[in-house]
Design a protein around this nucleic acid. Structure first.
Lengths: 114, 114
DNA sequence: TAACTATATAATAATATACTTATATATACA
DNA sequence: TGTATATATAAGTATATTATTATATAGTTA
């Protein structure tokens, strides 16, 4: 298969991941804030396994990375990912989602660890 | 629902459409070349109804537009679409697909109409 | 060590997606 | 007007996706 086909395939795979409201919002948030799973469970009204599965998909393509901090596993944007260049201009055009994190802080549910 | 949620939803819908290799390639091509259905049938090894259905999805969100020219219906990028701003920087990063159109021309299958 | 919290994985079910074939529609042209 | 060509739509099927519940794993702390 041609090089360019491989690139088109990879772009399609990444864009399919962004084509889900939950994951898209996660990425917009992670572009600014590191977050752990239980925070996302609060932000999205969704079960913990569902959140875990979304995060796994993003991790599997290398868009995000995880780091354990004590009890929690924090996810962050992998800005060195080969795909970050592709999605960055996209994320820039999306409305800021930091208010969701501020709401967490207000309700005392933001995890400030270590 | 919040304004920003509506925007995130819409972005996710558009990105899901781009998250398919065939449609992504169609858009990259249509960004430069107008094409009719039968040309896409040649470019992608895929049935005519399948091509039609992909084009319809892109048309339904306003990303592309159609124009009948005699026997053929030509599709083109709708650069005035509210979503074009979102996807343009993306398309720019994809490898050029014009060689697919050049192959059509070489094999005499490019439709040069009106 | 036991109990608790956070996260991941497995199994499953409902729904969505992307093809296919068959058929309808619209234009072109002999 | 009849036939051919281009496209759209309908119906059906296989597969993918996204959620759920149940359970496993790993770290924390009493």
């Amino acid at each position: 298969m041609k090089d360019t086909d491989v690139m088109m395939n990879q772009a399609a795979v990444v864009l399919k991941l962004l084509g889900d409201k939950t994951r898209l919002t996660m990425l917009k948030i992670l572009d600014v804030h590191d977050c752990c799973v239980c925070e996302f469970v609060e932000v999205f009204t969704m079960s913990q396994p569902s959140i875990s599965q979304h995060l796994r998909k993003l991790k599997d393509v290398g868009l995000i990375q995880e780091e354990r901090k004590g009890q929690w596993i924090f996810y962050s944007m992998n800005k060195n990912s080969v795909h970050y260049t592709l999605i960055r201009p996209l994320l820039e055009q999306l409305p800021n989602q930091s208010y969701k994190i501020k709401e967490l802080e207000r309700s005392g549910k933001r995890i400030l660890c270590c």
